[in-house]
Design a protein around this nucleic acid. Structure first.
Lengths: 104, 104
DNA sequence: TTATCATATGATCATATATTCATATGATAG
DNA sequence: CTATCATATGAATATATGATCATATGATAA
């Protein structure tokens, strides 16, 4: 029958819910997945990402800001160019797992 | 349908992108996370989920349909009552991992 | 300084999403 | 059959989100 309504499992606090949902939101958009997937290869400049994925530069920049705010990517400046790369092993592993799971 | 070839550094095909992004979308909403987290305890009736989480019945029902369409939950009827439970070990593991990661 | 390159930002718009209310459906008991 | 309970569904709405255009910022070289 159904669950006996025992309350030994407490509810998630609001902050945890926010962090977890935000993290998955980052992975819930095809464009961001494509960007993160491209970064599997290594670091990329903003324009190169745009060119490679056929996206507008401003679109890529907006998405990178989103990912940067969640600390999923980091950047490094070299002259006028800014190179982005992964910055969260855990989340990147989850994405990799899920892609492989979907591919097979 | 789509080409799922993934040799080295080719782009992800559209179908894979859709599957992966949809799956993460399911985990990208606090309400759905709370429901899935509650189901860690076992199977629950729709009304019990609503009561436990202080959500409207229709809201719970809509979210369960969403999760059911993605085959993240399954259901079992017993009389008038319908019990929902998890139905995707992989995704549930990912959610559990991420919650634990956020909690620590 | 000015010109140019690379990136970031803000405003806007169209679409997507989460929630609610009201109602429909389906199962069961009397 | 009717009444009631449990769940599902559809419409409406408010908010969130993704993409675009135009422009701003910042770095570099002449």
């Amino acid at each position: 029958m159904g669950n006996k309504n025992n309350n030994d499992h407490s509810e998630l606090d609001e902050e945890t819910l926010f962090i977890v949902s935000q993290t998955f939101k980052a992975l819930a958009d095809p464009t961001r997945i494509r960007i993160l997937y491209l970064l599997f290869e290594g670091e990329y400049a903003v324009n190169d990402i745009a060119e490679q994925l056929k996206l507008r530069q401003s679109n890529v920049s907006h998405q990178l800001r989103f990912l940067k705010n969640l600390r999923l990517v980091k950047y490094r400046r070299d002259g006028k160019t800014i190179y982005y790369s992964h910055d969260d092993v855990h989340v990147i592993n989850i994405l990799e797992q899920s892609i492989n799971h979907a591919l097979h």
